[in-house]
Each structure stands twice: as structure tokens, then as C-alpha cells.
Design a protein around this nucleic acid. Structure first.
Lengths: 247, 247
DNA sequence: GAGTGGTCTAGACCACTCC
DNA sequence: GAGTGGTCTAGACCACTCA
């Protein structure tokens, strides 16, 4: 079953093999977001390795935000539907000028089907003309509109997504995607530029047309580095800023 | 010397105590950037703990980019004067539209002394009116100006810094700071906004006045979370973008 | 008190680098 | 071949959670 540690020319340490076995369990849905995975000793005996080896595998996955360890309780599959708002809005980097944490509110505006254009097809890795779902929404902080964004999703996977569903759901967008469609976002890339506000966006955000806005383009990935979301947001950075930590 | 693992109410595991001992060695200059620290076995016997405990301490420090492990050779103090450009320009997130790696070139414009104003004093944690050094410089990619920035440094520490020194130095700015003044940047926070180009910046960047620019404000920290640099950059994002990975 | 993750140890062996 | 970091094991004990 398991590769001998040093037998192969494409050498991969045992704990990485264990890691990818656990990953398989996550991908296949054997352990769902929010649930606990088996204990370290249980996994060790199941895979026929020592507890320390399982531990190292889990350590890495916890560092990648795939798993969450809770001492005395167990190890859990990370979820966007968590009590902790830092996990819930993991990907939102926008902070108010004062620095205090503000509750953000999502206001879905539209949701419709379309066919993938050149760019959407390329970034989402689907065929040109394949069905996609597009969402337009507004993000408000303290009742003030701060972000307007469009979200592009591969249509096959998200067939049941409607404006009503979006309006009803309490919690983060990724929480919805996860619990309703079983798709877990685990990683994203953002490309930031400064752009001038077009008329429509300016009106929605309550700024003058042509005023500078922060353009944030995001591609999100699920297991296996598969892209499953492409979005473009325009951020009004008068009273808020995009915070990034560098290490 | 070392705290018994479980004796104190302010419990701190052994490997964290080892970690802070190694950190002391870095802060005090016992081991300098680019040099190797003693081997794990050596440190283990010196601190009277097992190799595994030292290993865990070093693991964390390597994850924080304070140390670099090199199998078969040893563990080295991370440096901004490294062959690897990913370490050299660790904090620069700007990428050209094509995505290909471009050589960036720094063009120092001015360097003068001043007294800290309200904002500089607060962010750098120094007294109002304390001496500071200000640098203005241009960053070029493929000979095109893309970034104009001003850098504020607490003056005491960087007394010998002049325009000539900046012009002569080959390598990254943090490399210079590190080798010439012994100050290691280990962490930074960036605040991003979209702003309109003022006349002067527009001219230098070769864009129209009023066109949108990405404002990047950075505070850099050295050991002990002490702020030692405040800079504000204006990025022209016509042919480049700011790339950020989210996990 | 049973079960979980968290820490620490001691020892064996492998992979890599350099002489 | 000597020395370094990298992997793996087995076992002990601690801290935390929950019933």
C-alpha cells in the first residue's frame, strides 16, 4: 500500500504520503467541513505508521488552513461556516480606516446565467461558451457601500444558485458555496490595480465618476489547484484600506 | 536556567524557550545574516535539551523566514543579501502584466535629514521632532518608471546614509540596511489604497495627472516588533499589478 | 476517568554536502 | 568518511475537554 520510504527514485517521505491520503479523504467528502477527522492514534494504526508521522502530516495541513486542531477535542476539517469570524472572512483584507473590526453586509443585486467568454473560460479552465453563473453584489460596511463586485462561477457546479438563495443565506459567500454545493475554497490569488470609476460603479458606491478605485481581481481554487471562482471587485478606499501582512 | 516545562503558571513549552534563546542570539548579533548557526546537536547539548526540541524551535523560525535550512550544510540566518532573488525582494509584490519576472532597478533621487512630524513619529515610535532620514526614489522595470516612493527612517540609526551610498550599493535596499547598519527587516504591514496622481508623481511616472495610482504604505519591523521603516509608494498599475496570495 | 492533542526524549537510519 | 539536516519510531507524560 504505502511506498517504502527510500525504495523509489521519485522519493516522497512517508508523512507526505499520509498527507495525501488524508487529503483524499477531504476531497472525497469522507470527512466534511466542520466535522472531526479520526484521532491521530486511529489514523496511525489505520495507515500502519507511527503517531509522530501522522502528526507531522496533520501539522502541515493545519498550517495550510485545511485542518484545525483543538486540544482535548480532536482535529477538524476547516470550514467557512465557523464561529470564528477570522476563519469566516479569511479572504477579505479590507479594513476600516479606524482599524476597528466592522461587520460587513453583503447585498446581492443580480444573479444570471451566461456563456463563458474568452477570459472567463481561460481563468476558470472551462470551454469557451460553457455555461457560467454571474453574480453582482454590493458589500456594505456600517450601512455604507464600499465594494461592488462581480463573481463568475462555472455554471455546471452551481446550477441551483439564484438571487433568492443568496439573499436568504446568513454567513459568508464561501460558507454558502461550501454547505450548499460542497465546494471548498482553500486558496486564492488576488491581482490589485488602481482604476478610474466608471459611471455605474461610481453611482453605486456613492463616489464621483472617474475617482480612483482599487480593482481587486481574485481567482479562487479548491482541492488540486482547480480554479472555481473568478471575481472582480472595485473597492472604494476613501474610508477603508486593503491590509496585507508580509513575512 | 531553563524553566521546568510544567512548573510555572505562565506555562511556555521548552521549544519556545529554546526559540527565544536562539532569537536572542540573532538580536545580539552573535550569529549574523548569511552565517550559519550551530548544528542542532550542538545547540541541543548547549541548552541541555534533546535534538528534537531544538528542531521544533528551528522549524518555527524557518517558517517565519528568520532561518533557512540547507540539508547537509547547516542552518543559516536569513539575509536580504542572498543569491535567491525571492529572498532578496521578498517584500516586493509588484509583477508585470505578462507575469514574467523582470529585473527591477532602483533610482535614488534624493536623500535628506528632517525632523519627525506627527505621523512619522507615531508610526516609527519616536519623539516628535526627532531626527529622521527621508529618501525619494524611483523604481524602474525594463527601464520604465513604475513606482515612486518616499522612505522614512529614524535618523539616529541611519546617520551615515547618503545619496551616494544609495547609488553605489548593488542589491536590495534591505540588503543595504542590513549589511551597512545591521538592521534586519523581518516583517511588514502594507496598507493599499487607490489615489489620484498629483502633478509631480504623474510626471515622474509618465502618466497623466489625476490618473489612478496604487498607494502602498508600508511599515517594516525588526526584532521585537520594533518599527524601523515607514514608506509610501505610488505604483503605476497600467502594465503591472500587485500580486497577493491568500491562504 | 477516558480520550484527545501537545510536549519531550532517545535512538536509528537516510539524504545531502564537502573534503 | 565525517558532519549536517530530514525522516521515522516507540514510549512517557502533560494539558485540555467532556461525560
Amino acid at each position: 500500500m504505502l511506498q517504502e520510504a527510500h525504495a523509489s527514485p521519485t522519493f516522497s517521505p512517508l508523512y507526505r504520503q499520509i498527507k495525501s491520503l488524508i487529503l483524499q479523504g477531504l476531497e472525497s467528502g469522507e470527512w466534511r467541513p466542520g466535522e472531526s477527522i479520526p484521532s491521530e492514534t486511529e489514523l496511525a494504526s489505520r495507515f500502519g505508521v507511527s503517531q509522530g508521522t501522522v502528526r507531522k502530516a496533520i501539522d502541515e495541513m493545519a498550517a495550510e488552513n485545511l485542518l484545525v486542531r483543538r486540544q482535548g477535542k480532536g482535529t477538524y476539517v476547516a470550514s467557512h461556516n465557523d464561529d470564528d469570524p477570522r476563519l469566516m472572512f479569511r479572504f477579505l483584507r479590507l479594513v476600516s480606516e479606524g482599524g476597528k473590526l466592522e461587520a460587513s453586509q453583503s447585498v446581492p443585486l443580480e444573479c444570471w446565467r451566461a456563456k463563458a467568454g474568452q477570459e472567463a473560460a481561460r481563468t476558470l479552465g472551462i470551454k469557451l461558451g460553457a455555461p457560467i453563473t454571474i453574480i453582482r453584489r454590493l458589500l456594505k460596511f456600517s450601512a455604507k457601500p464600499v465594494v461592488i463586485e462581480e463573481i463568475y462561477l462555472p455554471g455546471e457546479t452551481f446550477a441551483g444558485l439564484t438571487l433568492e438563495v443568496l439573499q436568504e443565506y446568513q454567513g459568508s459567500f464561501y460558507g454558502l458555496i461550501e454547505s450548499r454545493f460542497g465546494v471548498r475554497m482553500i486558496r486564492a490569488e488576488e491581482r490589485l490595480r488602481a482604476v478610474a470609476a466608471d459611471r455605474g460603479s461610481a453611482t453605486l458606491l456613492g463616489v464621483a465618476a472617474g475617482s480612483p478605485l482599487l480593482s481587486v481581481e481574485r481567482v479562487s481554487f479548491t482541492y488540486g489547484d482547480k480554479p472555481v471562482e473568478w471575481r472582480r471587485g472595485l473597492y472604494s478606499t476613501a474610508d477603508h484600506y486593503y491590509l496585507n501582512e508580509l513575512f
